[in-house]
């Protein structure tokens, strides 16, 4: 009957609840700092890991997209036969584009590529065969397309950097699997540390908790402030981690890009807002789950 008419928001309750959270949060600052620090370190590592993974995936994808199949033709193939080959290859669904690169153009490309490194004028005779440059729609199909082209007539050799393609594809798969495992381990370790930290604050208040239960407080009622405390720890830790990561990204990333010999990395973008949201969710979730577990131990009467 007392509950009748409580549809209007009871500010007294809200204030009481916030007071409880604040009291519990400021009660032991040392422990709170430990919990927040743990979350910050974990989330920072998690963030770095996710960032690197995404960059590598993006850069790898770009590399794969640049992979082309060089099809070298036998000597003395006629223009008509080249056209024939081109149409046959281009007709395949997996193929995105086919370009014909005659000997002369191939030589020019080689010269400009070697400029300054080797004196290209030593090439008095053109040693290059005619070639077709084939691009695949999906990097996964490169190997299959190359194998198929090899079976066509008047083909000398087919080359596509087999090793690179296979490595990149493998790397992608491994990163994905290892990534999930590493994330799970990170979160677990952080969870355990926070659970222990919060358990200490709960332990200090176990008498109080017992009394609350004796006057009829439900477990949820007793839990709520602790859960909020855990959430607060998690979110504060995550904010620190995000700040550090953003600062590090701004300060270090451009220099790192210059130092590393992979121009593909520069264009590989990361969805920063999404990543930040993910990190906050991770931090908050660790805090909530850890505190839920550690309070639970003291609620069994």
């Amino acid at each position: 009957m007392r509950n009748a008419g409580t549809t209007i928001l009871d500010w007294g309750k809200v204030r009481f609840f916030l007071g409880e959270v604040a009291r519990s949060f400021t009660r032991n600052k040392g422990m709170q700092a430990t919990a927040i620090g743990t979350v910050a370190v974990t989330v920072a590592m998690l963030g770095t890991f996710l960032f690197v993974r995404e960059i590598l995936t993006a850069a790898g994808g770009e590399l794969l997209n640049q992979i082309e199949i060089s099809v070298y033709l036998q000597n003395g193939v006629s223009i008509a036969q080249v056209d024939d080959l081109r149409t046959t290859i281009a007709h395949d669904e997996r193929v995105a584009a086919v370009d014909f690169i005659p000997k002369k153009q191939g030589l020019q490309e080689l010269r400009s590529r070697l400029k300054g490194q080797v004196d290209a004028s030593i090439l008095t005779e053109n040693p290059l065969p005619d070639k077709l440059r084939v691009r695949a729609r999906d990097p996964q199909d490169v190997a299959a397309i190359a194998a198929w082209i090899q079976t066509l007539p008047r083909i000398a050799t087919v080359d596509y950097g087999q090793r690179i393609v296979q490595r990149l594809l493998q790397l992608g798969a491994v990163l994905h699997r290892v990534g999930l495992a590493v994330i799970a381990v990170f979160l677990f370790v952080a969870g355990v540390i926070i659970a222990n930290t919060i358990r200490l604050t709960v332990f200090a208040r176990r008498r109080e908790i017992a009394i609350m239960q004796l006057v009829g407080a439900t477990n949820l009622y007793i839990r709520a402030p602790f859960i909020c405390e855990g959430l607060l720890d998690g979110l504060l830790g995550a904010s620190i981690a995000v700040l550090v990561l953003v600062a590090a990204h701004v300060a270090l990333w451009p220099r790192l890009l210059e130092a590393l010999p992979f121009p593909q990395l520069a264009s590989a973008g990361v969805d920063a807002p999404l990543l930040i949201v993910q990190l906050f969710i991770a931090g908050g979730a660790i805090g909530v789950i850890a505190s839920w577990i550690s309070v639970g131990r003291y609620l069994r009467t």
């Binding site: 007392r2 509950n3 008419g5 409580t6 009871d10 500010w11 007294g12 309750k13 009481f16 609350m212 006057v215 009829g216 407080a217 439900t218 009622y221």
Partner: peptide, 10 residues
Amino acid sequence: FAMQVTGAHT
């Protein structure tokens, strides 16, 4: 507190 746990209005 004994009243709060019953959900009583402030």
